[in-house]
Design a protein around this nucleic acid. Sequence first.
DNA 1: TTGACAAGTGATAGCGCTAACACAATCATT
DNA 2: AATGATTGTGTTAGCGCTATCACTTGTCAA
Lengths: 330, 330
Amino acid sequence: MSSPTLADVARLAGVSEMTVSRAISGRGYVSDETRRQVEAAAAAVGYTPNRLAGALASERTPLVAVVLPTLFNAVFPEVLAGIGQGLEPGGMTPVFGVTEYCAETEERVVRELLSWRPAGMIVTGLEHSDGTRRLLAGCGARVAEIMDTDGTPVAACFGLSHRAVGAEMARHLLARGYRRFGYAGAFLDHDLRARKRRDGFIEAVRDAGARVVRELAPAERSSMLLGRRLTADLLACGERIDAIFFSNDDMAAGGLMHCLAHGVEVPGGVALAGFNGLELGEALPIPLTTFRSPRFEIGRAAAAWIAAADDVPAPPRVTLDGEIVPGGTS
Amino acid sequence: MSSPTLADVARLAGVSEMTVSRAISGRGYVSDETRRQVEAAAAAVGYTPNRLAGALASERTPLVAVVLPTLFNAVFPEVLAGIGQGLEPGGMTPVFGVTEYCAETEERVVRELLSWRPAGMIVTGLEHSDGTRRLLAGCGARVAEIMDTDGTPVAACFGLSHRAVGAEMARHLLARGYRRFGYAGAFLDHDLRARKRRDGFIEAVRDAGARVVRELAPAERSSMLLGRRLTADLLACGERIDAIFFSNDDMAAGGLMHCLAHGVEVPGGVALAGFNGLELGEALPIPLTTFRSPRFEIGRAAAAWIAAADDVPAPPRVTLDGEIVPGGTS
DNA sequence: TTGACAAGTGATAGCGCTAACACAATCATT
DNA sequence: AATGATTGTGTTAGCGCTATCACTTGTCAA
């Protein structure tokens, strides 16, 4: 009752297994005549190739392992879409795992994915456990680290400097005259890129002689609801806050929701800025000031390198461009 | 330069390959003494099992193929999370493909995934091309169709009746006195569950002697921005509309954004209702009236059946409960 | 005429692993 | 002491596919 194999197709088509293999995979010489017969036979028996066997025999899989921290953040589906697009021309397939921003989970997931002998490995961020780094360095697959460039990659990294983005947003807000800042983030012990944005932001604010009045960053998942709650807390803290920098757009949108619900004027009462440049920000009653991250492009660039010819060397550090999107909230 | 194999570990541990296999997989008898030696040897050479070989030999993979229409809709990451949780106890791994709501793409993706010989297959919806249905019926894997129960499953389905949800929302709004309705959806030629909700809604409205003044459903992806635009169009159509039913929460949230931006009172000027019960709805200045879909539970239930013992029969149709979430927008 | 090479096909030998069976050794039960 | 079950280990034979080499035929230039 198991599915038909090459041998079944070969018997029906009256050729050797090897010829069927060539006809179906498209590698090597097969006459048009033979190819037609093989295709007819394959269709007749309902043949589906067994890639487990194929990959084992050829010691080559079309798989690219992708390790992401979460799917509960709209950027990662977009990264995945970029990866899909970058992989398509090479006929490779992404398979992925999710870490929930946990280093041990990451190591487990990487180990698990490596057992399928992928041709490439795309992991998020530059910080990993020693074990993970060892696995990545020794696995034989092309390894791309994405989203971040502030650190040392195993082989290649594709992303942007989150510290620089934080600093740029600080300068943008400072230029508009804001001096007393709040910060609302989440999960900074694990979301290290958000932390870098925060660090860059705070440093630039202080360097300019302005002040971060208060920051909040509880150990829970970022969300619109959390952004709303933290905004309420920040505005109720007693000291005047001119502008709030949020760890991402969802959080910032939540902040705006608080303001709309409680009649706080934006940006007059308080200015708001996010990060990512999600479509969400454009749909808000006041378009969100944010930073457009090149997430799709990051995925595509990393995937394109993974899928590239063997002799294409690792580009150690690829910075993809984003930019401040000035909205109405600042 | 290829990775170490069972034979390498066996040599170092001074036992047969078979014993190493047993020690590592945990199947069959191995003395504690031997197991320790094998583990030490495996660690020493940096052994990573080759699941391609294992799966080929045992004719058994831990893979469950998951076919989703998109990741650009917050429900699907949640479904995936449910699937992950349902699969975990059985040690199975989800691998997935995305169809973009296209039947041909679905067939290609299903064929592709089947070539990895998964133990289970989770597909979205009950409508498929003949080819897809044939593949699913003949593949030997357990097949679960999720999200919908309005139709005939190949083997088992887990979801809810979208027609019934649409009708229930209509009755909810009718009970609150609304009589002149608008509908805002997207992509209904392909998003067949959204279409069923619409159909159920419209039928129930008409049965009650009330009226659907106008409906809009362009052939593009649903989003907050689209919801906002369609709401503007509906409200500008000339005839008074009491309440708008949106194809989902993102669209409805966009609708609310339009109203907030243009000073349209909600629900006094127009009432709004969505579908899914996303967290987003709670974060809005006026909490959204919606229907909480049991998406996480659907994923978990389907996965649990896939991972269940061989003698557990297919439960032909499993309806999971959701409920109207009365918000402030109606 | 010769050789060089491309095109087309088949036979053979694995890829790394596990199922299935065989065989000891140990143990409890009669 | 004999019996059968349980535990622990090894041997053998594939799983379904592709790499590699061997072979044949045809084409074309020297």
